[in-house]
């Protein structure tokens, strides 16, 4: 019994190592091979002079390529409604004027932290079938009005 059980145990250890290695391999491939990235780019900014560094709004810089600048405040996103027509690539530049917030577009994989003192830059490639209204929420606790902090993303396809 003991001999057999020990063999099973070694087989289990081998399985664990192989399994975790495969998982890590897939993650590594997704990043290096497929170009997926966790949010990483950020520049520091002066929270007292935000308007000199970021202008909230939506700009189409090339067909289907948008730059969306957002300022998070207790308790609203500015702008609170984002309209994109046939977006292929969206570059979000986001910062906060006060505390930490979390920018999440429900139903997509857009979900990252928003920090005062840092302007984050995140590129999103919306799937070609993404269309209609999406709820934008703040998913990091940001004070007593946190639950009131939401907005809307509208994607129009033509």
């Amino acid at each position: 019994m003991a001999g057999k059980a020990e063999k099973l145990e070694y087989a289990w250890i081998a399985l664990v190592v192989v399994m975790l290695t495969i998982f890590l391999g897939i993650l590594g491939y997704a990043v290096i091979g497929e170009g997926y990235s966790a949010p990483e780019d950020a520049v520091t900014c002066n929270v007292k002079k935000l308007e000199e560094q970021i202008t909230p709004g939506v700009k189409e810089v090339a067909p289907g390529v948008y730059e969306v600048d957002i300022v998070a405040r207790m308790w609203a996103w500015q702008p609170n409604e984002i309209v994109l027509e046939n977006p292929k690539k969206v570059i979000f530049r986001i910062t906060s004027a006060d505390v930490q917030h979390g920018f999440e577009i429900v139903g997509t994989n857009v979900n990252f932290m928003v920090f005062p003192g840092y302007i984050a830059e995140i590129t999103w490639y919306p799937p070609s079938d993404a269309e209609g209204e999406f709820l934008i929420v703040c998913n990091e606790y940001c004070g007593l009005g946190h639950q009131n902090m939401y907005g809307k993303l509208i994607i129009i396809r033509s």
Binding site: L24, E40, A42
Partner: peptide
């Protein structure tokens, strides 16, 4: 802190490996 802007993919991957 995987979705924290300002921390690189490298740091995140190293911590992923240790987590595994």
């Amino acid at each position: 802190q995987f979705v924290d802007p300002g921390i690189s993919n490298i740091a995140k991957f190293v911590h992923t490996v240790f987590t595994f």
